[in-house]
Amino acid sequence: DTTLRITLQLPLKSHLGQNLLMFKEEVEAKSDMKIEIYDSAQLYRDNEVPQAVGAGEIEMGVASLTRYVGEIPAVDIFYMPFVLNTEEKVRAAVAPDSPVRGPIDDAIRDTGSHVLWWQAYGGSVLLSKGEPLRGPEDMAGKKARVFGKWLGEWVNVLGGAPTLISGSEQFLAYQRGTVDIGMTGVSGVVSRKLWEVMDTITAVNNADIEFIVVINEDVWEGLSDEQRNILTTAARNAETSVRDYMSEFEANAFKEAEANGMTVHFPTDEEIAAWREASAPVIEAWLAESGELGQQLLDAAESF
């Protein structure tokens, strides 16, 4: 009998946890494989997952895609400002054999992990008090929460001061004014009730947040063809489910935020053009670091 342990940083009741449960049920119903979920970072924090799964400390894990940036700078194509800023573009980019996802999955395989499926987490929004951010000039001189290297670079390029704040510290940081501008996935606004501390959302979609579920490559190779088929099918079902759920959830989340007194600003085409132009230096810097693969992914993404 085979036991596959999965480590997850978020609690089981989060939508990523529920998605794992769905996968577990299908796999256990169709085979004698057992799936054990270790949620809420009891075993690993997000940033430790790539190495832990790659080295076979644990069979499976969920990590945000950007956690691979230390080894594969190109994965942050999803954090490049305004490159994948609509749902159609994102769906095209994360399709299993797409020219964006395919090379990323291959590169991750080199780290010792096989990618089973991608879990959608939604686009990034900016939070502020009083006024929405109508353009890059509104970022200048402000302290902004960021959650990764290239998002930090982006804020830097726009003249803001990037401040690394963990998900759980966000609420206090906004309430106390440690930062002026918030940045998070829109689901974070709902789950953390950020409307109690911020009143304006700018749905700027500067980045797309993705999580991936990986399994150790040796464990994967050690399974029978039948087992691999069952896992792949269950993974595909889970993937479709979570992405459809997320589209619906995002639309509702904006409504819920408005119902709780927030103003939601969707940038106009001119505003997006201004944002995009001011952000260009970030993409150049990233291309210099992510090399050929980065260029290849960017070309593919821009063709969508």
Partner: peptide, 12 residues
């Protein structure tokens, strides 16, 4: 279980 978990845990 993988004993390497110990050093990851300690560092973490």
């Amino acid at each position: 279980f993988a004993p390497r978990i110990a050093s990851t845990a300690l560092l973490s």
